[in-house]
Design a binder for these strands. Structure first.
Lengths: 140, 140
DNA sequence: CTCTGTGCAAACACTTTGCACCAAC
DNA sequence: GTTGGTGCAAAGTGTTTGCACAGAG
């Protein structure tokens, strides 16, 4: 258990947060607030709002990522379960790492719709970084 | 204008649907139901429910795709504005084309968060197609 | 004429928030 | 002791739905 995660984020380490982080750690795939809630309901009696608030706090601190289909429930997962992708700026050729991945949520949808199981993917993103984009905008 | 789209889907061609499709055609990027509604509000007086119902009907018929961030508003766009990606089955080596793209919605989020503008991307998806996946499941 | 689509308003599901109390630092 | 976190219940937000009427086929 790395409950130190909470401390390292500079937020208070409460019983509730420990429980929620523990559940996130156990779940190797994204889960909804509801699922988390139903895991604790019985044993600990943590409030639904607390679940949401904790998840949002963790997301703000960058420890958790949200995924999900448009209009549907939000799925949460610890970022450690993520892999990284790279952005390449076509103007300054800077490379930027991002640890969010759009394919995970997409794969879930795809599986529901088609039955296809995505086991690996490769994603290349190219474009303009914030600075280069603003330059080219203003120069017009 | 390809209002024949409506007829080709086997649904009734109403004034409201024409207007909505026309707006979707005009908008080269995904828009929300709200945005569509505000486009028509003045001129035609179409109901919000009709907008949603039409969009969902179009989505069911496969003429429109939904995208959007988890927990956020749903963005709609005509599929013609999409490009395709390919699924490759690692077992039977079948290739399957899909015309949805998870990167579009992701790019929007990314831009909001980091300012990076994605202008091109390349996505490879590999895994198991529905049949191969079910075989490998059942064989265990 | 029939049946699908529409308007309206009310219901929904999921998520967020205000306030008073409580516990971590 | 201070400040941030929690529980509770109530309010949001975006989307969906039931019903009676209207318009497309």
């Amino acid at each position: 258990m790395k409950q130190e995660l909470l401390a390292s984020l500079g937020i208070k380490v409460t019983k509730q947060r420990k429980v929620i982080v523990a559940i996130l750690e156990k779940s190797k795939e994204p889960i909804t607030a509801e699922e988390i809630y139903s895991c604790i309901d019985v044993q600990e009696g943590i409030n639904f709002s607390t679940v949401y608030r904790t998840l949002n706090t963790l997301a703000e601190k960058g420890a958790v990522t949200k995924t999900g289909e448009p209009g549907g429930k939000i799925y949460f997962q610890l970022k450690e379960h993520h892999h990284a992708h790279e952005l390449e700026c076509l103007a300054c050729h800077k490379h930027i790492m991002i640890d969010e991945c759009p394919v995970e949520s997409f794969s879930r949808t795809l599986n529901k719709e088609t039955g296809f199981v995505v086991t690996e993917h490769h994603l290349q993103l190219k474009g303009l970084c914030a600075e280069c984009a603003s330059h080219s905008d203003k120069s017009v």
